[in-house]
């Protein structure tokens, strides 16, 4: 029995359109069809404030607002601070992971990643589905 609302809206954030397309397709395979996209942190923040989302999956390295800045903004916003936030990034140094954790990231996926890893991290972040 799934404890997750499969109709939840998920926001994916990346400045590479190809990457957005890949993540969207993988989420569709996992059963999530309500997926919105943003190309950087500031555009994502606007969407998060305009609509209710159940999960954010964000890249780190974006301009003008990075994924880490987006995470900090989300955690500083009383209406958004409980939102599950997964970082998907090529930034694999330990200091990056530590900084993201200190900023309140829910989970962290290193690029390149596979569908199984995405599902595992999503399950750990939002529950079994």
């Amino acid at each position: 029995m799934s404890s997750v609302d499969m109709n939840m809206h998920i926001l994916i954030v990346d400045d590479y359109k190809t990457m957005l397309r890949i993540i969207r397709n993988l989420l569709k395979q996992l059963g999530f069809n309500n997926v919105d996209e943003a190309s950087d942190g500031s555009a994502a923040l606007q969407k998060l404030r305009d609509k209710k989302y159940g999960l954010v999956i964000s890249d780190w390295n974006m301009e003008p607002m990075s994924g880490l800045q987006l995470l900090k903004e989300v955690r500083a916003d009383s209406r958004l601070n409980g939102l599950p936030f997964i970082m998907i990034t090529a930034e694999s140094k330990s200091e990056n992971v530590v900084a993201a954790k200190q900023a309140g990231v829910t989970n962290y996926i290193i690029k390149p990643f596979n569908a199984a890893t995405l599902k595992t991290k999503m399950t750990a972040s939002i529950g079994q589905f």
Partner: peptide
């Protein structure tokens, strides 16, 4: 077919890494 499609999606990660 579904498994193969998933593998192709995964493999396409390379474009993002290459770009970076």
């Amino acid at each position: 077919i579904a498994d193969s499609v998933t593998q192709v999606y995964e493999a396409c990660n390379f474009q993002d890494i290459t770009g970076q």
